[in-house]
Nucleic acid binder design. Sequence first.
DNA 1: CTGTTAGCGCATTCAT
DNA 2: ATGAATGCGCTAACAG
Lengths: 345, 345
Amino acid sequence: MVKKKETITIYDVAREAGVSMATVSRVVNGNPNVKPATRKKVLDVIRELGYRPNAVARGLASKKTTTVGVVIPDISNPFYAELARGIEDIATMYHYNIILSNSDLRKEKELQCIETLLEKQVDGLLFLGGEITDAHREIFHAANVPIVLAATRDEKRELASVTIDQIQAAKEATSVLIHEGHQKIAYIGGPLTDSVNGYPRYLGYKEALTEHGIPFDEKLVRLGNYRYRSGYEAMQELLTAEEPVTAVFAASDEMAAGGIHAAQDLGRRIPEDLSIIGFENIPLAAQVRPLLSTVGVPMYDIGAVAMRLLTKYMNDEHVETGQVTLQYSIELRDSTRLKEWEETK
Amino acid sequence: MVKKKETITIYDVAREAGVSMATVSRVVNGNPNVKPATRKKVLDVIRELGYRPNAVARGLASKKTTTVGVVIPDISNPFYAELARGIEDIATMYHYNIILSNSDLRKEKELQCIETLLEKQVDGLLFLGGEITDAHREIFHAANVPIVLAATRDEKRELASVTIDQIQAAKEATSVLIHEGHQKIAYIGGPLTDSVNGYPRYLGYKEALTEHGIPFDEKLVRLGNYRYRSGYEAMQELLTAEEPVTAVFAASDEMAAGGIHAAQDLGRRIPEDLSIIGFENIPLAAQVRPLLSTVGVPMYDIGAVAMRLLTKYMNDEHVETGQVTLQYSIELRDSTRLKEWEETK
DNA sequence: CTGTTAGCGCATTCAT
DNA sequence: ATGAATGCGCTAACAG
């Protein structure tokens, strides 16, 4: 399998083409200061010899690897996978490659990934989804490369980031339910200890209630782990408890889908008996019946914009603001009754 | 953002610790030939100075990058995302990093990705999902690194690969429907020009029919692109055509889910009026109602085993067989009526 | 426009 | 157990 072929270098090309290695280097790098005839000759020899530039050597000499590191919670999660796709597309566009590391949102592993990525001399770093602690800030500040956060932000506002306003989004989702006339609105969310997604969405829910004079009722809150199963179970609990519920805001589409099915299994019709709205707008939202109304989070764009922002930093281009907040949308489909929505954004 | 800190090298550590750089190198690489006292001193200085080994320099000197390239069709596709997760987990376990490139199954882009990855001096290459042409074989053979295919195989059997027997799997899925007593079994698949997934699954469907003496009817075949939407449309056509249909084998879960909903929208009950079986067993299969019966493809394992196999090649370990065929399973749930299945595998 | 000369930061002989 | 020397393959001044 492994054939030890003698690696052919820039030097071989130079000798064969009767020029210096500097000239070959210029040709390879598209430096215009080469006579067309010379260029052609070098190019011919390159093809003939099957020369392939060694990016590692180039990286060592130039101190640029055209590689960026991406620390991602879990690539098998549709939400982050879509984000990763946005990142990769833009990276490719700017001729960067991506080193991917799954962190599983575990702080220990996150820091470990970052450390390894920095050893590999990435030109920049994209950090997705996790909470930013002082340990993160420390290593980020010590790093010699630009960092951009995506789908998370630095509470201390020291780091560049691309996100949406989660509190506002959650508030608006809840408001949809309120405007439908519901008073008994339950919340199915993630852990409140999750300061990136869990807590802000919970906060938005509460704020919406408060703003509309609806009393907050702790008994209408169920916490899961964003996955389908936990949404199913939460809904089951909610509907079998004595407290009546006529609408539910679920902090993730998977939970919402689980909720829909649990409700249906209990004989509830959606949206006639119960309105449900989700969060994220992953493909699943359009693959359940009824079609799930949800908060549209521009996952692909968050990734794309974050990567684009990173390229600017890597090129020392001017950046007006490192804290980018993208717009979310309210996708009204069939799991709610309201068909139009125009809210203050 | 970008701070130009003077990079501290192995040489700085050596000077500060009063040893030679060779010794520092030994310490960093865990070479046992270092006196404990010396080792401790060096380690202390390393911590003190915040020295971080430069993997690029190391790669140039050692000709190993501890990085493997992964060419993947589309990371935002749940099927491949799960595969990628399997790869990354095993890679991490063996201290490799992953450079990910999306190919979108476009041959041009695939070859481009491979070329770039080889320039980056990856220690190995994982190629996912695409068809292997002579152009691929050529570049693979010219590469100096081991290659393993995952979720695809080389028809000429020259390359190592990890897959399942798709024809057999499709045949078995179809057989489930036949054993339920169906005669009018439709097929919703991908393009027949897709020799990796599209054609084999189609073939398995046909073979099952033939084997059971059921005439193949071209009018019961609809081709889509594996996605939900195309499954929905295909089913709609199937059920509104004059040809009666009582069961459907869909070559992907997304199409199957789309099919379920199309059927339901047309008033069909599943599985009472119509049985449906899918392929892949992505999470969605357990997130639709009725729960989708399907062929369980061990995506994570395919990735994990492929990566493990690659590590063996990279270490020049002995490998019995490079052509690994993993077992699939038949997941009987609620979109079919049969509740038990024991077939020749 | 082209060649010469230095490193980039480290692993790795080869000595000692 | 440790140090000195060499070079991995290439870019980047600096000459000319």
